[in-house]
Design a protein around this nucleic acid. Structure first.
Lengths: 157, 157
DNA sequence: ATCAATGCAAATAATTTGCAAAAAG
DNA sequence: CTTTTTGCAAATTATTTGCATTGAT
């Protein structure tokens, strides 16, 4: 993530904390810096590692207590990839409507946005009497284009 | 679910078992009958209850062992609604590409299908070098249409 | 000062698993 | 008969929580 985007995301989270009269601690800063210092999806455990590299005093409990704040702020989203642990996606800060394509073999993940899909979602929802707050679209696919490059660690792509 | 559809879904699962040389036991029948006897999403615990009502010998372990078979067969899908337990959706047997709108207040869930969205997904995926295997689209929304009817158990709709 | 936030270690709870007995093919 | 499946209870593991202490405002 570009340096200025990291700052923007971080500022947004600080503002969120302020709005709720929550405190800005060294541990929360280490965690937030770690979260927005990557554009990769991560697990709670990975976040703990990264945060500890910045501030050795960060505990697992604090990571688990901060994650719900991050998701509540809307800057991060919990992702379910069918594993036994949750993943978190930090890219909602800058791309609030993005979607995912996941290769069923190599598990490579590509993010994309589509106004057309967004519009259809709104249209369909309206017809059904709803108004959209957020959406998540996950496409499972085989990355056949990678067949030749041999980049897919399993069978197909 | 109409009686004939239940039978179709059940037959498909039996065929899946046969294909893998797995055995058709009384417990599996009770579980499968329970799964396709509803069109509601359910939890492992609910499925255990329903299955036990049909056959008192069904154990929790067998339910947990059968669920992966059902998902592997493609007739049932694991759903994540952000709760601490998983939900299962039996409607993929007859509507393999359906999507969900969930009211953020009353948590009412409406299922819908859209060829237009399906097409866009395929088109976009192809451009990115993937070919779609399956997809899941979940829209979180407020069911404003229900405001007047007072059917929404929380605030907004 | 005051009250929120922390680390620690123990608790929770859904799901998984080892094993000996039972049942399917 | 052979191999899979079962129920039971114990194990696993990500996440949560109580509590005494520390730190932000």
């Amino acid at each position: 993530m570009p340096v200025d985007e990291i700052q923007v995301a971080k500022q947004k989270f600080m503002a969120f904390l302020a709005r709720k009269s929550l405190r800005i601690t060294a541990q929360r800063q280490a965690i937030v810096d770690s979260v927005f210092g990557t554009d990769q999806h991560f697990t709670a455990e990975q976040l703990l590692e990264w945060s500890r590299a910045r501030d050795g005093s960060v505990s697992r409990a604090t990571v688990y207590r901060t994650l719900p704040l991050l998701t509540e702020s809307g800057l991060v989203r919990e992702m379910d990839f069918g594993k036994d642990h949750k993943y978190y996606d930090p890219n909602y800060a800058h791309h609030p409507n993005h979607n995912h394509i996941i290769c069923q073999d190599c598990e490579r993940i590509v993010e994309f946005e589509s106004d057309k899909i967004d519009k259809l979602e709104n249209e369909i929802s309206r017809k059904l009497g709803f108004s959209v707050t957020s959406q998540r679209l996950q496409i499972t696919a085989s990355c056949e284009a990678l067949k030749k490059s041999g980049a897919c660690k399993n069978r197909r792509c």
